[in-house]
């Protein structure tokens, strides 16, 4: 990992750090808030992407270096920003729980909305792309192995159940069939929602997508099906390709917005009228309907998954 850190810091330090210091910094980045990794990812992602570094992280680095009797204790802001990226990278790569690993990466990717329109100001494209490999869609496509072909035999068996004890007669294979039916039902609900005329008649495409997506994710009783989210969003957009400044989109959806529980998401925080560091630039950026829908969808999904994990 020292080598990786040296690569990340290349272009940030005037004279490359020696191995001893790199080893110390790897340990520091690894140990920072190791009991609350979601908070760590949120804090470090924003530090790196906005360049406005977290004081907590900065102090932690300085104090630990001081405790280690390091010659260098206070590091420049640009170095702290890159250490923040390294902390995210390390946390994602070293997480043994598959779901958490993908949630950390998705949180980071959600926060990347703050870099919209200024992507080339960020360093370390290769490292960022390595984190991108762990987006939640990759987890879902790998783990959602429930079949999608409807089994008809199980339907007739269940339909004939008459007493409360009949379910005990189901064998393992039939339970698998039931899981398939449950998934099919979940997909059916999504399709029905997407056909809801009341929602489809909303003329403002951003308000329409917002309404459909929030109701869609709210309706998920099981979060880990590999829903075709992009198709849902494209369908909700109904061919609309309009771009709109984010500040105006937020005004449009303001009458509908409700307080969404969010600890980490940029867009949801802005919808909730919470402060987000360095968001002025983003508020002036234009998003098209589908982009807006995708950012919103994955923020909502990530929040729900984190909430379920913490329950």
């Amino acid at each position: 990992m020292e080598r990786k850190l040296a690569i990340i810091l290349d272009g940030a330090v005037a004279i490359p750090y020696d191995n001893e210091l790199l080893t110390q910094l790897v340990t520091i980045c690894r140990s920072y808030k190791e009991n609350d990794l979601f908070v760590k990812i949120d804090e470090c992602s924003l530090s790196f992407i906005t360049g406005i570094v977290s004081e907590d992280f900065s102090d932690y680095v300085a104090n630990t270096l001081k405790d280690n009797d390091s010659e260098l204790t206070t590091l420049p802001t640009n170095v702290i920003a890159r250490l923040s990226l390294f902390s995210v990278y390390l946390t994602v790569l070293e997480e043994s729980d598959d779901l958490k690993q993908h949630l950390y990466a998705t949180m980071f990717m959600n926060a990347m909305i703050l870099a919209k329109g200024r992507w080339n100001e960020l360093s370390n494209e290769v490292v960022i792309r390595e984190i991108y490999k762990f987006h939640i869609t990759n987890y879902l496509s790998e783990h959602d192995t429930t079949g999608e072909v409807l089994s008809t035999s199980i339907i007739s068996i269940i339909a004939k159940f008459r007493t409360g004890n009949d379910e005990n007669k189901l064998n393992k294979l039939q339970i698998k069939d039931l899981q398939t039916i449950a998934k099919d039902a979940a997909y059916y609900r999504c399709d029905e929602l997407l056909k809801n005329q009341e929602l489809l008649n909303i003329s403002n495409p951003f308000v329409r997508v917002y309404s459909i997506i929030t109701r869609l994710v709210d309706s998920y009783q099981y979060l880990y099906y590999n829903y075709d989210a992009e198709a849902y969003i494209i369908q909700s957009a109904n061919g609309e390709k309009k771009n709109k400044m984010l500040s105006n989109i937020l005004k449009d959806i303001e009458p509908l917005s409700r307080d969404i529980n969010t600890g980490t998401s940029v867009l949801l925080r802005l919808i909730n009228k919470e402060q987000v560091k360095n968001s002025d630039f983003l508020l002036q950026r234009k998003l098209n309907v589908i982009e807006f829908g995708i950012y919103l969808y994955y923020e909502l999904l990530t929040e729900q998954m984190i909430e379920k994990l913490e329950e």
């Binding site: 272009g11 990717m109 990347m112 909305i113 870099a115 919209k116 992507w119 080339n120 960020l122 360093s123 494209e125 960022i128 792309r129 991108y132 987006h135 869609t137 992009e230 589908i290 982009e291 995708i294 950012y295």
Partner: peptide
């Protein structure tokens, strides 16, 4: 070494 605009824009890549 600076990123290409498109390479980090994961949402547009998805679209």
């Amino acid at each position: 070494n600076q990123p290409q605009a498109s390479s980090l824009d994961w949402v547009n890549e998805m679209i």
